[in-house]
Design a protein around this nucleic acid. Structure first.
Lengths: 232, 232
DNA sequence: CATTGAAATCTGATATATCAAGCATCAGAT
DNA sequence: ATCTGATGCTTGATATATCAGATTTCAATG
C-alpha cells in the first residue's frame, strides 16, 4: 500500500507565522469597518499593541497596501483606505471576477461537475426550507467552490478571494433574512442551470448580478446608504 | 494669484524608496518571463545581488506574494509562480475588471466624457493611418485612462492596473502589426460608441472581448501555445 | 550496501538599532 | 504681532544580528 493513501503531505503554508496573523487581524478589522477611513496607523505603536516587532508588521502592512486597504506615506504614516465607496468597488470587483470564473466554468464543466452542482442546489433547497443557516452557509461555500474547481482557474480564484468582505458572522446576518435566502437560492439554481447547459453569457450575467446584489446588501448594512443606488 | 495655479503639490508617493524599486524590478522581470515558473529565489542572495538589505526585499516579496507572483514557504524558499496559465488568467482578470469599469463608464459618462472619447478615437484613426506607433500607444493609454475617469472608480482601476503585463517595449511589438492596429481601432471605436449611447451591456462585452483578444495575442507571443485556444 | 540519525548548513522569521525625512515648537528678529 | 529658521521629536526606511525550522551531509550501524 502506498503511503500516500494513508497520510497526506502537510502544506508548508499551514505553519503559522506572525506576519500572516497580523495581516488577517488587520484585514478583518479594516473590512469590518472597525477602522475609520483615512485613520492613521503608527507602525511602532501598532507593533507594540500587537506584541510583535516592526518586521512582520511591516510585511503585513505591505500586503494590505498591495490589496489597496492602506496607503503608506514615507516618514509620515500609514493610512487606512477603506470606506463605503471602496467597499462598493470591492464588491463590484468580486462580481467581475466571479462572473468571469462562472463563464469559464460554463465552458469547461464536465458532466460530473454539473451533477455535483445540481446536487448542491437540491441540498440548498432543503436547507433553505428548513431555515438551517449554518448548513446553508456551508453549502453556499461548497457551491461557489465547486464552480471555481470546474472553471479550472487558480489565479482568478485567488484574486477573487481577496475581494471577499464576509466572515462567518456576517454571513449569518445576511442569510438570517428569509428574503435573502429565497433570492440567493433562485440565483444559485439559475447559475447551476446556465453552467449545465453551457450558456456562458447567462452564467456570467446571473453570477454578476447575484454577487452585485448580495454585495450591495452587505455594503448597505455596514455603511448605510450607497451611492450606486440603482442596480448596475 | 493663488499659488496653486503656479505649482502643484508633490505626492508623497513620488519619493523613492528601495522597496518599490525592488518590487518594480522583480515584477517586470517575472511578468516578462525572465524567471522560470517555479524558480526558487533566496532572500539573502537576491538582497546581495540587488545591493539592499533583506528588509526592503522582504517587503517587496510580500507585495509580489499578494499579487500572486511568488509563493513563500517558511524556512524553505520563495518560489516564482508565473507561467503560461497564470498569464492567461491574469489577462482574463484584467478583461473582467476592465469590462466592469467600462460598464460603469457607460452608466455614468457625462457628455464631456463622450466628446473626449470620440476625439481620442478620431486621433487614433489618424495615428493608425499614419502608422505612428508611439503616438498610438499614448492615445490608447489616454483612451483607457479616460474611461477609468468617466467610470468614477478608484479601487477597480488600481486592481486592474495590477493585472497589466505590458510595458512600453511590449506594446511597440504588439502594435507593430498592422492587423492588430486595425482590430484595436475598430474595438476602441465600438467601445466609445457603446459608452456614448449608455449601452452598458455592449460596453462591457466589447471591452471584455477586446482585452481578452489582445491579451491572448500577447500571451501567445511570450509563452507560445495557449490552452484556451478558442475564444471564450 | 542500505539505513539511520546527529551535526552542519541553509533558509526565512523575527527583533532591534540606527538613519534621515517630516513636522511641530518656540526663541529671536523685524 | 508676524515671520523666520534652528532644534528636537516622531516616523517610516534600512541594515544587521539572531533565532529556529528545514535540508543536506556523512559517518556509524546493522
Amino acid at each position: 500500500m502506498a503511503e500516500s493513501e494513508r497520510v497526506v503531505p502537510v502544506h508548508p503554508i499551514f505553519l503559522a507565522n506572525l506576519r500572516d496573523h497580523v495581516h488577517h487581524n488587520l484585514r478583518d478589522a479594516i473590512v469590518a469597518g472597525r477602522f475609520q477611513d483615512g485613520e492613521r496607523l503608527s507602525e511602532r505603536d501598532l507593533a507594540r499593541e500587537l506584541g510583535v516587532s516592526t518586521t512582520p508588521l511591516k510585511e503585513a502592512l505591505r500586503q494590505l497596501e498591495s490589496e489597496g486597504l492602506v496607503r503608506t506615506e514615507a516618514r509620515r504614516g500609514v493610512y487606512v483606505t477603506f470606506g463605503a465607496q471602496q467597499a462598493e468597488e470591492m464588491s463590484l470587483a468580486r462580481a467581475a471576477l466571479e462572473s468571469m470564473i462562472a463563464r469559464l466554468a460554463a465552458k469547461r464543466a464536465e458532466p460530473s461537475d454539473v451533477e455535483r452542482l445540481r446536487d448542491l442546489v437540491r441540498r440548498m433547497e432543503g436547507a433553505t426550507a428548513a431555515g438551517d443557516i449554518t448548513l446553508l452557509i456551508d453549502l453556499n461555500e461548497a457551491f461557489h467552490g465547486h464552480i471555481h474547481e470546474a472553471s479550472g482557474c487558480d489565479y482568478l480564484c485567488r484574486l477573487q478571494a481577496k475581494q471577499q468582505m464576509y466572515n462567518h458572522t456576517i454571513r449569518v446576518g445576511l442569510l438570517g433574512e428569509a428574503e435573502e435566502r429565497g433570492l440567493a437560492l433562485g440565483e444559485h439554481r439559475a447559475i447551476a442551470e446556465a453552467i449545465a447547459t453551457g450558456d456562458q453569457d447567462a452564467a456570467e450575467r446571473i453570477m454578476r448580478d447575484h454577487v452585485v446584489r448580495s454585495g450591495q446588501r452587505h455594503v448597505q448594512t455596514v455603511f448605510g446608504a450607497t451611492r450606486l443606488g440603482d442596480t448596475i
